[in-house]
Design a protein around this nucleic acid. Sequence first.
DNA 1: GCTTCAAATTGAACATGTTCAATTTTACGC
DNA 2: GCGTAAAATTGAACATGTTCAATTTGAAGC
Lengths: 233, 233
Amino acid sequence: MAVAPPQEPKRSRRGETSRAAILNAALELFQEHGYEATTMRAIAERAGASLGSSYHYFPSKEHLVLEFYRHTHVLHVAAISPLLAREKDLAARLRGTVRAVVITCEPFHAVAGSIFSTVVDPSSPVNPFGAASKPLRDEVIELYAGVVQGSDARIPADIAEQLPLMLWLYQMAILYFWVWDGSPGRLRTLEVIDETTDLIVRLIGLANLPVLRGSRRRVLNLIKSIVERPSAA
Amino acid sequence: MAVAPPQEPKRSRRGETSRAAILNAALELFQEHGYEATTMRAIAERAGASLGSSYHYFPSKEHLVLEFYRHTHVLHVAAISPLLAREKDLAARLRGTVRAVVITCEPFHAVAGSIFSTVVDPSSPVNPFGAASKPLRDEVIELYAGVVQGSDARIPADIAEQLPLMLWLYQMAILYFWVWDGSPGRLRTLEVIDETTDLIVRLIGLANLPVLRGSRRRVLNLIKSIVERPSAA
DNA sequence: GCTTCAAATTGAACATGTTCAATTTTACGC
DNA sequence: GCGTAAAATTGAACATGTTCAATTTGAAGC
């Protein structure tokens, strides 16, 4: 199969600005008022478009959330890039990366609950386990693969294989905690991140103990079987 | 403060049948068509009530889901009662209990996704971590306390203190997996339950190893601090 | 320049969760 | 029995996500 040419997609650039305007208006309004309080009509109005036009570019309001999520991911990647370039210690890399997630999202904390609610919903088309979010999900998992591989830690191959996916799940758990965190400046979440990232690295080290070999193999096989045999038909 | 008398609540029994009819209609329709496909108007109609009446008894559609959840809990308790009465092995008790959860919920699997979506939503008033669901949550945690205490396993006190809560969380994770499980008869979920419950019991046993003492204490302290210092102000 | 067709745009219409002011019913003191 | 206040009931009205048929726009082919 020949590689496609740089493909200036022929049917582009006409509605490109409309799409961008709508998306931009949505991101702004989500940050200002949260997900539920933002109406599709308000998005269309701020974008200078019509209600129907918004639906022409985005199948549903939830798809706009997916774009919001992607937006924060870009910010996150930019935020941790210097750290990943210089730091070699796995615990420090992991701590910095996960800290950066919540710090990046901090401006949106007030509205994050309403945004994440849509994302966790199993019946939502933009659910993180669903097909629509696979590209972004893979990017995040890849990011954690980089966090691990760029460190000087020696991770056994069987663990290294599943670790990025597990760290992605871990990040989601932290975010779920963060959404609930009412402490000032979300310091509580940062404390929990510090403690859990350190524990994770420590437990990976302990996994080499002979007494733990059996359980380790079982756990990893279980994870592997779940990932490889996706239950969603 | 004097204990209240058996308290035939004086303002009762008038709307009692209305309330019951509405709840009943809701449970039926949720099972038949799922959460989203069931309209409040349809519930009112089947109950022989008016739309406004439904809102008189239940503040929102989501509160009806909480009742649905309570309903399945009652079925679950009834289902595992014989097992808990005779079985003493912890792994067997745990496996049977969690298996019973998904078996009890199996008739609703097709609609469970739409129902659980509401429940996981952090901004929902009936979120399992929220205040509205505390009574039911405490019941389930208590149930798992019974699963552990009724066994012949010797659980160290520090672990036993946090274990029921952890098992409640574990059950929620299993339910989330089950919602996504597309395998025939949800056999996949049962396999995962068998493997994970066995692993849990095994890991509890391993937690006594001297090398794991430090991490064990840290993990338990972390859990404790999270539970005792609820982040939701 | 004209034709043509797909993309883009529009806003009315619809479905549904929720609110609320008004009305009816019920229980209770007299 | 009567009056009254609280509870229960009602359905119209509202807000908002979504759909859709109709219209407008813009570029490519001639």
